[in-house]
């Protein structure tokens, strides 16, 4: 261990110390007038900058993104030049491991958000619906679905937690139902902490779905459900 002393004040400012070293340096700071003064100076140095009037809409943008980011939990701040969602180029039916689905979720929400901003005062053409799926009496887990409509496509993102472990080839399958007729809409296997996510994109037949449900299927790829519904919600 290196003893923290005045020589580390530059590393402290640069944020390159470990948590332990930071605590040690802050101990040194209590008794070192030199380092205290350098630190005080950092409260003054930014005033060397030429004053610049911030863009008028910046506050709205930033605060919206900060609170939005918080609401979306794992969502990362999107760079302003967000790429076109990958979803559009994806094959129509597919399922991904939870991590990839989560990444897609970020990209989708980011784009939906960017789209709201671009469209300004106009009626947004992107619409998002969020529902909580209710478990059946015997099931413990919880799930949330986001349905995002944009440019005539419908994206379905499901995230779930507290899920029961699967056996063998079993899989959690998401379905969209219209008057009792289901189509598969993404599938996932939970991670060891019981969390999972699925992403699915529809480019046609996007209207009129009345129910979303998750079943526990004996294997992936079923066109019609064989297992029991464990979570569901009306749309």
């Amino acid at each position: 261990m290196t003893k923290m002393n005045c020589g580390h004040v530059v590393d402290y400012l640069n944020g390159t110390l470990s948590d332990k070293e930071i605590r040690e340096f802050e101990e040194h700071l209590k008794t070192c007038a030199d380092c205290q003064q350098i630190l005080e100076l950092t409260g003054e140095l930014p005033y060397l900058a030429e004053p610049i009037e911030p863009p008028a809409e910046m506050k709205t943008r930033i605060l919206a993104n900060v609170f939005e980011e918080d609401a979306g939990r794992e969502q990362q701040p999107e760079p302003k030049t967000a790429a076109v969602p990958m979803a559009k180029r994806m094959p129509k039916r597919n399922w991904w491991p939870p991590l990839i689905a989560a990444v897609l979720l970020l990209s989708l929400l980011g784009n939906a958000y960017a789209f709201f901003q671009l469209s300004g005062q106009q009626e947004p053409e992107t619409a998002m619906q969020e529902v909580n799926l209710q478990p059946n009496e015997l099931f413990e887990g919880a799930a949330q679905a986001k349905l995002i409509r944009e440019d005539g496509s419908l994206d379905v993102v499901v995230s779930a937690d507290g899920l029961e472990e699967l056996r063998g080839d079993e899989i959690y399958q998401v379905w969209l139902l219209k008057e009792g007729q289901p189509i598969p809409a993404g599938a996932f296997k939970p991670n060891p902490s019981g969390e999972g996510a699925a992403y699915f994109s529809l480019n046609e037949n996007t209207e009129g779905w009345d129910t979303i449900a998750i079943t526990r299927e004996p294997q992936a790829g079923n066109e019609l459900p064989q297992g029991d519904i464990v979570l569901s919600s009306e749309l």
């Binding site: 005033y47 900058a49 610049i52 911030p54 910046m58 302003k80």
Partner: peptide, 23 residues
């Protein structure tokens, strides 16, 4: 907002990047 934005523009020389940093 104003002092941080001015400071970040001085650092980045790029108002867009400064906004990203401020966010």
């Amino acid at each position: 907002e104003k002092i941080l934005f001015s400071f970040l523009v001085k650092m980045t020389e790029d108002p867009d990047l400064a906004e990203e940093a401020l966010q």
